[in-house]
Design a protein around this nucleic acid. Sequence first.
DNA 1: TGTTCGACGAGAGCGGTGCTCTCGTTCGCG
DNA 2: CGCGAACGAGAGCACCGCTCTCGTCGAACA
Lengths: 226, 226
Amino acid sequence: MVTTARERARAELTAEITDSARRQLAEVGAAALSLRAVARELGMASSAVYRYFPSRDDLLTRLIIDGYDDLGAAAEAADAPDAPPLERWLAVCRGVRTWARAHPHEYALLFGSPVPGYQAPEDTVAAASRVGVVLGRILGDAARAGALPPAGDERDAALVSDDAVAVLGGEHPSLDDAVRLRALLAWSSLYGAISFELFGHFVGSVEDGDRFFDRAMTELARMIGF
Amino acid sequence: MVTTARERARAELTAEITDSARRQLAEVGAAALSLRAVARELGMASSAVYRYFPSRDDLLTRLIIDGYDDLGAAAEAADAPDAPPLERWLAVCRGVRTWARAHPHEYALLFGSPVPGYQAPEDTVAAASRVGVVLGRILGDAARAGALPPAGDERDAALVSDDAVAVLGGEHPSLDDAVRLRALLAWSSLYGAISFELFGHFVGSVEDGDRFFDRAMTELARMIGF
DNA sequence: TGTTCGACGAGAGCGGTGCTCTCGTTCGCG
DNA sequence: CGCGAACGAGAGCACCGCTCTCGTCGAACA
């Protein structure tokens, strides 16, 4: 299987298109991202871009996947697997927030209003789950290390799905669905806090965003049981 | 001060425009809301709409304010001032969630990605604070009723602003900034949970959204101290 | 009461968008 | 070598936000 010159050119041009699009996304946001502007920046006709992305939404989907991946990598890099659970949780939360503040438009694309034409979650769900996996690993490690108060083995199938159970530490005696529910809640709360800060809903209420975030995430960790 | 026929016509037409816009917002979302389509529905030239709203963003701002107002009214209606704090908190949370699920596009407009041209918060902040006021009232009432564990009188000016303190129960001995921080966190967590549900981030993790939400909000209430 | 000035609605138009179609070219596989 | 598929460019369609002009009509003012 040799890669022909045409295939290589196609891969390169595809990368150039996504690079240009990512740059424009960072500058003007997803709503103002224009496929024609991408083509203009690359010096090609707008119709030529459609050879590589069948629609603007597909290009956005590509950026969404890349964004989830980048955020997931940031979360993984922030984790310190040898530290106690609270420190790990805090580090990952800080990592997610730092990434969000550094890439506000990407963050808004990932966690803000969904694009009008619903993106197909099939492609994105794998990349999107990376941060969840990191949090699940912290939860599982904490349970195995006995750092979590033992809980009843309540299994409430209607609450947390089997997939989520697998990610959130698996079947460990220290983990029942109440703990996993708190973990899921903390997960969404992390994004609630970041979104409120980024989208301006905390303006006038919170003075020092850094310290508020740290104390809030500590509060969530206490809720989980760390 | 008499209202001339012209003024009355202007007020009526303004209302018709916002009504049509609200309808389109509910149907196709903010991103696809078109000023020309509004004009078309009203049988007028698109340029005529600009006599009433100087730009599309101003029309959207109007819808944002109305949305905050409607949501605030729903939260106030859901509150049961005579019930114990936990029940009140739960009722308001359920009310907000119910409103969000009934008006997903409006919710996304309010709490999703901000519109490209930042809306001026001056006009919206008053309407936006209604839900916060409801939650603050619950917190204050709980403190006055002694339903909150007494706390140190720590005043951490860098964390929670004076305005937020005033809304969140004022200066009561049962309320220190740690409590208020938890309340602000719970507030953002409420929207984090609703956003995750509405925007699909819980797909594959949460089975029964209703029960998950109730138990999650109960968990948050416990965190606040209710 | 008559006049004037501002509000109004309509239409044309500008530059932009996503997307489609056609047409000539060029590359790669059989 | 030849053929078909991939490719790039251009024109074009329908739509968008927004601006400008122009004729009309109402309301306040002299």
